[in-house]
Nucleic acid binder design. Structure first.
Lengths: 260, 260
DNA sequence: CCATCAAAAAGTGTATCCACTTATGATCTT
DNA sequence: AAGATCATAAGTGGATACACTTTTTGATGG
């Protein structure tokens, strides 16, 4: 079996992880999962960080059992790599992953939005408006973590009538792409937010008018713009063929959606 | 918290599960996962069957630890439901799930096929031909399990150039839909296979000619036909709006794909 | 006969333990 | 001094133990 890279930084775990304080009546594995996921997405635990079961358990003052479950969940979400008998590692950034994520989001969120917009209640629209206000249009949000949470909720509302299992998948994709956003923002890129604000506004207006086809088109452009923006900063040489296919498909397709 | 249905049949577990015989050097949790998944997909473990950790562990002659991991994996795949402190149950059939599955497959496999077909090697084409032959065109395959395995491989080849994580997801979707196919076949419906044979042939021909747009269109129709067929047998009153949207999107979109 | 409810049985989540695998670092070789 | 070798430390997967939760059971009263 191929031997994995020796690389990796010295363990930052002891400096980063704090003992779990949550109510002991909730499941530890779930809390640990969320805690670690948050740290990975925000780059507090950078790529290649080794997450050994014992060390994590030690830092968090719990036993290995719930840590194992949490690590397995992170693996399912594509945030860490775990091979049999080897310690778990935080996965690195990969332009192919980034592209796949946004392709998946464009296709799935688009289709899900098409059906959701048609049956949106006035209360849904109102929630969208509130989130829009929360998100603001700063060049750079004061609290990135909260901005991303609201952003996730905004997108979540656009597909809230889809199948629950697909919804969960889309949320996972959304969160996984947040990791790239954190990284890009830390690198200084800030064009993202101003443009996102404009695009969110347009999407909201189209939802308000209950125009699925327009929403799908706008959503496709919104996601594609973000993908290309992040990609430019992150892997400028990458040729996003699949992404272009997806954009084209959704655009051409969406134009005919209303005639269904 | 809502109390779950008391229903459920008497435990068939002891009659169904056999002790694990695999090589002890492989991970038990993975073997258990595959074993249980196979039984669920083929309806040997019907909906509402209770999969308690202790009972499964007992039947399989292993401890609860790997069983827990296996059950968690099944949960991620949407085959069982597990709530904290409650025993795990096999999920029932749900037209919404069926629709969501095929919508997801139509969108994702379509986009993935678009990029894969362009870069298919002659060896890939040859493999497709072999599988086509294996699948045959019987009204009803002699060995359904093997037919489905080959079928999965055939579809897998159509998106083998996509991102690995998406590939895994598509395979999971494919397997989840097999559960509905098993059920439909057991109910007597057999139109599926003859038509599938014709459609697979057409897809193969388009791959051979390296025509992505055609493959996407044919694949969309192939999946949509299967979905509608199964749905008709299974939930005749269901109005598959989302599915129709997806078909439309992919068709209109695919037509313009070649101009990329 | 059915509903109620307390106690027993069974089940889940977490901690700990053991056997075997992988990583580390000192020692030896050249 | 660089590389191979091997004993030891550390880590993982699986088994077992235990505290707490849910389910079942069965006695009791209407």
């Amino acid at each position: 079996m191929a031997r994995r890279a020796r690389a990796g930084r010295v363990s930052t775990l002891k400096a980063t992880l704090r003992p779990l304080t949550g109510d002991s009546h909730r499941r530890a594995s779930v809390d640990i999962h969320q805690y670690l996921r948050d740290l990975i997405l925000s780059n507090a635990l950078p790529p290649e960080t080794i997450l050994s079961q014992v060390e994590v358990a030690d830092c968090l003052k719990v036993s290995r059992t719930p840590v194992r479950e949490a690590l397995r969940m992170l693996m399912e979400e594509g945030l860490v790599k775990a091979e049999p008998n080897y310690r778990c590692r935080v996965l690195g950034f990969d332009p192919r992953e980034l592209e796949a994520l946004y392709v998946s989001r464009i296709a799935n969120e688009g289709i899900a939005a098409a059906v959701t917009v048609q049956s949106m209640t006035d209360s849904d629209i109102k929630k969208l408006a509130e989130l829009l206000h929360e998100l603001g249009n700063d060049e750079r949000p004061r609290n990135l973590r909260r901005w991303l949470k609201n952003h996730r909720t905004f997108h979540g509302l656009l597909f809230c009538r889809a199948n629950p299992l697909l919804q969960k998948r889309m949320l996972v994709d959304c969160q996984r792409s947040e990791r790239y956003i954190y990284n890009t923002v830390q690198a200084g890129l800030t064009d993202l937010f101003r443009r996102a604000a404009i695009e969110h506004e347009k999407i909201y207006e189209a939802c308000k008018r209950r125009q699925p086809a327009t929403v799908v088109a706008l959503l496709t452009d919104h996601l594609a713009a973000a993908a290309i923006d992040i990609m430019a900063e992150f892997a400028p040489d990458w040729e996003p063929t699949t992404l272009r296919n997806a954009i084209l498909l959704m655009h051409r397709g969406a134009a005919h959606l209303d005639k269904a």
